[in-house]
Amino acid sequence: MIEKQINQKAWFMVLPVFLLVAFSAIIPLMTVVNYSVQDTFGNNQFFWVGMDWFRELIHSERFHDAFLRQIMFSGIILSIEIPLGIVIALAMPKEGWGVPVCLISMALPLLIPWNVVGTIWQIFGRVDIGLLGHSLAALGIDYNYTQEPIAAWLTIIAMDVWHWTSLVVLLSYAGLCSIPDAYYQAAKIDGASRLSVFRYIQLPKMQRVLLIAVLLRFMDSFMIYTEPFVITGGGPGNSTTFMSIDLVKMAIGQFDLGPAAAMSLIYFLVILLLCWIFYTIMSNVGEESSNGGV
């Protein structure tokens, strides 16, 4: 028997992409790794500090706080956007003129650039000229996102939900549309309640798209920078200083390149780890349902 011939020419085809990735990702990453193990007093003089920055960072309260805020933010965002997205997708019409109307209005927020979204909500929430801020103030509600941490958080969460729930909706809607009619008819005949239909037909069939939605939303929200930077700048105090904002403050504001580099790496690894955990858990749910056995 003749083994299949392996064609080495293909490697040359991959070379340009490899170089591009090297320049855009690998080399910068290595630079960061390089910075993270050195200290500098300016003048381009560096000296070796080993793992010091990492040790210091991991024990620093500042990092702990930013990390907790970040986790809390992503947690809140996911627990609002995923269920809300599913509910909206379920409520959307499956045929008729309503379909394009819903799809387009759902897609609109996704088309707006991040910094514009931030600016919109920054103005929207202002007590003096913003519609939201002004109306709330007029109702006698004490709302001022530049002063109170809670108001600041609520504003940023509302903004993110407004901006990104559509993505979950569109993904879930695509999942729902792929379910054949026969399933709904069979469920009707079996006397299944609306809830059972959701639990046993819609949710299992949406599982794959939901996995993608959760991963996308988690990664995005964990790295959020532009919008809170535009709205609150990380304040009041440090209350909305998420990891990315803290990182920029450290690296550019204070020019602490070493610790900032160490933080970037930890940040990167945390995202990688959490995504892996999410992926494993959610695909295990799928495995379990396909592997059988009790």
Partner: peptide, 9 residues
């Protein structure tokens, strides 16, 4: 139906 309808989970 033409295609088997079962509850996967």
């Amino acid at each position: 139906f033409q295609f088997p309808v079962i509850y996967d989970t």
